[in-house]
Amino acid sequence: MEIHKTSWLMGLLVTVLFIYLLAPVILVFPISFSGDEVLRFPPTSWSLRWYEALFDNRDMLRAFWTSLTLAFVVTILSLVIGIPAAWVIVRMEFKGRDLLFNVFTAPLLLPTIVLGLAILIVFASFGLLATMRGLVLAHLVVSLPYALRILAVSLATQDRSCEEAALTLGAKPLSVFFRVTLPMLSSGIVAAAALCFLVSFDEVVITLFLTGPRISTLPVELYDYVYNTADPMVAAASVLLILLTLGVILVVERAMGLGRAFVK
């Protein structure tokens, strides 16, 4: 086995890299069980008080439900818009196809702070600030490019002869789409959905411009909280967020295997 022959130096490097990447995340776990009044490591005593505090914090809970609903709606809309868009871009032959794809995915390249500012200016004049509708629209700007990119790639790598076979067997184009194209796209759809969900759930920069006392998402609420207070409750919230993210990834992994979903 060639792979085991990598030198110890390489092994060390990978280990250091992993520690560097994961240490802050791992540190959050012990801190969340701290019994101290302030954020510090290592904690001097242990307790579950910050979890209790978190679940007693009505603003946090409200923000959590907002985030969850938002991510859910954004994911569904990303798919509903992304699947037909990807189909048109990949399958139809027309002028400006590449241009369309680039316009759709351009937000990925723009600094989010610029996007946030632009969205703020536009939304202000439409009365969309601090509304659920506004948040959904803003998050779509960020999640759609991801969805479109993943869906377009899986659609482009799909074996077209299956669709052709379905046509020759007498299936109308719409039946071909629903009976063959869509089911064959399922791994791409699950991957896109997972990514959209996480992108929306984690989004802070743009959301900061759009939230206010009336409506706020969990990341923004946490940000505000840390800005004012430095107690370990944010660690408890972080742990729950990490577990939620892991849960989403596990669902994808169960559905098709992580490698296949994202790497393909």
């Binding site: 076979a165 379905a166 020759t168 007498g170 299936a171």
Partner: peptide, 28 residues
Amino acid sequence: VHERDMGLVFQSYALFPHMTVSQNVAFG
């Protein structure tokens, strides 16, 4: 195509991967 009533067998087989053998055959 779908009104031509022709059976086409592909070099790549082009079986529907998400259907069982009998579902594949039943499709048409």
